[in-house]
Amino acid sequence: MNARTFHPGLFTALWLLPVLALLQAALVSHIAVRGILPSIVLIAVVNWGILRGADQGMLWAFIGGIMLDFYSGYPFGTSTVALVIVASLVSLGEGTFIRTHALLPLLTVLGATLLYYLIALFVLQSAQEPVDWVRIMRYIALPAAVYNALLNIVAYPLMRRLDARVYPVPRANW
């Protein structure tokens, strides 16, 4: 990866992730199901990591995390750290393998959501915030993970299309 090829993903992240974070903050309460909120930023970051690998996934995680931190009232950096670690672990599974199996992007988002909450809670507890691990994992994280996984049925094909637009496959000129 050189600087030139890095730019399309960076530019896309710089306009898309602030918009997604804003939508997540302003709209989530309207699309919440029984109080469970989806995380469209996390879905975008994980999918981009699957499609584009570790560097791009973590770049998106870094920008997306900072955007989420602007909107949340928790210690600044909580979402950034959680998303970057999640993106780094997702990319360990090698995007090629995940991309070739229809269900794996869904399961990856499910696992990534649970991991995101675990890391965020760890950070919050380290910052002396009161954390009820079992309660949050059971009533917030697990339902959110299922919700995110279901949303990814729609989101993953959209992200593939975005990937194809941002990084078009060159056509051979005969």
């Binding site: 690998g53 560097d55 750290v81 970057v84």
Partner: peptide
């Protein structure tokens, strides 16, 4: 513009950056 997928050159940088943001 073509790019090979993958690449972990900047991974450590982002991890360090994220912790710096937190600190």
């Amino acid at each position: 513009m073509v790019e090979t997928r993958g690449g972990r050159r900047f991974a450590v940088l982002f991890l360090v950056g994220a912790f710096l943001v937190l600190i």
